[in-house]
């Protein structure tokens, strides 16, 4: 297949939310294209009528009751201690608009 274009690489980086420099774009273009070329061997495998596999050990749906459990105060503190920015006990984020 043809090499990825720089626009495609930038688009993927945007979808993946990874900031990229011009140098990064050139490097990803080369690295990703060589790996994608390697995948071409799969086109030689006949998969007509083969279902994509789901769960590998054949397990089917595992259900549980949909009940919320409160965590103890220590656990809540340990979770909130990991949050980079909080305000009044809430997680603070940048404006999304």
């Amino acid at each position: 297949m043809a090499e990825l274009t720089q626009e495609e690489v930038r688009h993927i980086a945007f979808l993946a939310r990874i900031g990229v420099s011009d140098e990064d774009v050139a490097r990803y273009q080369k690295d990703l294209s060589s790996v994608l070329a390697y995948f071409e061997e799969l086109n030689t495998v006949d998969t007509d009528g083969v279902e994509p596999i789901g769960h590998i050990t054949g397990m089917t749906n595992v259900l549980r009751e949909d009940v919320a459990h409160d965590a103890d105060e220590d656990t809540k503190k340990r979770i909130m201690d990991n949050v980079p920015q909080t305000r009044d006990g809430y997680i603070q984020v940048k404006s999304i608009f």
């Binding site: 990825l4 993927i12 993946a16 939310r17 990874i18 900031g19 990703l32 790996v35």
Partner: peptide, 22 residues
């Protein structure tokens, strides 16, 4: 998001995220 992930994720991790996203 973009700055956090650019700065703090390593090269191989970013490469695989890019490959998978594609």
């Amino acid at each position: 998001y973009q700055d956090t992930r650019r700065i703090f994720l390593g090269e191989e991790v970013k490469r695989r995220v890019m490959l998978g996203t594609y």
